[in-house]
Amino acid sequence: MLDTGIKVLFEGNNITRLLDGLWVTTRIALISVILSVFFGTIIGIGWSSRFRIIHVFARFYLEIMRIMPILVLLFLFYFGLTRIAHINLNAEMASIIVFTLWGTAEMSDLVRGALTSLPKHQKESGLALGLKSFDIYFYILVPQAIRRLLPATINLTTRIIKSTSLVVLIGVVELLKVGQQIIETASLLRNQTAAFWVYAVIFLLYFIICYPISQLSFHLEKKWQS
């Protein structure tokens, strides 16, 4: 029983197919992380400024993203958008947009937190030197904030990678879907324990990807805490 179950993994191209699936997952996560960091930083900086309107908008946006489960957002963008606005996204694009929207919200909160935690005299010294507010941000505040930000951003990355497993539910062919296809073909070949091994391998693959990243975040946090 055990034997035949594991064998499924080595049939045909199954291993490469699983790895291809893993790449789809990480690709969605990577693009979303990059976009999130970018947009999140912009919104976060705006949020830490004195403009009240930006505060209200950012707060509202963050609140929505925190209330809605990601799966619901995925459904809204994949099925809802086409029916309501006649905008047609393929499943992967819809996922990237949803993860970017969510990541941007989380990131902007982190950036705001990091910027507002900096001592006030930093900004004031900059002003006293005659720097414009843009320059104060980019040459004084942001570099310092990055140090406080980086561990949390890396942590956000693992959260996004983990959440990408959800895209299988709107039909992206990624790691989980490939796994299910393998299980299905295996059951055609009278192999009934395949589900155990395939899901175990997928579990392990996610761990192998996420564990080093979260360790990195943990060490950076320790190193820079002082």
Binding site: G12, E184, T185
Partner: peptide, 14 residues
């Protein structure tokens, strides 16, 4: 379908 053999499925070569 990708999971309904023998009508529509994906074989071990993808």
């Amino acid at each position: 379908f990708s999971d309904k053999p023998p009508f529509g499925y994906v074989d071990s070569n993808g």
